[in-house]
Amino acid sequence: MSRRGDEEYDYLFKVVLIGDSGVGKSNILSRFTRNEFCLESKSTIGVEFATRTLEVEGRTVKSQIWDTAGQERYRAITSAYYRGALGALLVYDVTKPTTFDNVTRWLKELRDHADANIVIMLIGNKTDLRHLRAVNTEDAQSYAEREGLSFIETSALEATNVEKAFQTILGEIYRIISKKSLSSSNDSAAAANIKEGKTIAIGGSETATTNKPCCTS
C-alpha cells in the first residue's frame, strides 16, 4: 500500500505501544501499518516508529505510532515517548499470565509519565494460540472495566481485530478531542488548524512527534 507523503488529514494522533517484551507489539504495528506479520522478527531495541492514515468517524486521521522495547530496563529511554501521546495500546500475551499480571505496572508507568487524560486500550494478543491460552477473556474484560480501559483481544498473526483495535482507540481519542474543540472558546481557530492538518497531539516535549504544535490536548 503506498501513501503520498504530503497527504491531507484532519487530525494527527500520537499513540504508543507498550507492554512486556515478546507479547507481539511490533507485529501488531506491522500488521496495522503494512499488513505484514513476521515470525522471524528481531526484538525491538529502543523505539520504532510507523504511521497510517485512515478514516475514523468520517474524518481522516493520521496515527503516528511509537513502538517501544518491552524490557523493563528500557523504560529509561522509552518513557520519554509517553509524553504527548493521546493513546496507549497496552499489550499482553494471552498465553503468558505474567504479561497480564504486569499490566498493573504498565498502568502505573503511564500514570507517572503520560498525560493524565491519555486513552488506554488493553489488548490481549496471540489468540491464534488457542491451545495455549492462559488468560481468560472474562478476567481481562472485568479488569479493564475496573480500570476504565477499553479492551480487545487480537491475533496479529491471523490479522484478527488489529484494525478494530486501532479504529476503537482512534475513535475514542477523536471523540474526546472533538468534544474539547467544541467546548473551547477558541472554537473557530481550532477548527481552522484542524483543517490545515496541523497536529493536535503535542506535549511540548523534546520527543514530541511533530514540528508544528498548535495546541495542547
Binding site: K42, G46, V47, I77, E206, T207, T210, N211
Partner: peptide, 21 residues
C-alpha cells in the same frame, strides 16, 4: 526544528554497536 533527537534513531547503534540492523 523537526524535533528529532538521537534516541529515535541512534540508541541501537550504541547498544548493539551497529550489529542490530
Amino acid at each position: 526544528e523537526e524535533m528529532i533527537n538521537p534516541s529515535m534513531y541512534a540508541s541501537q547503534w550504541f547498544i548493539t554497536v551497529f550489529s542490530y540492523s
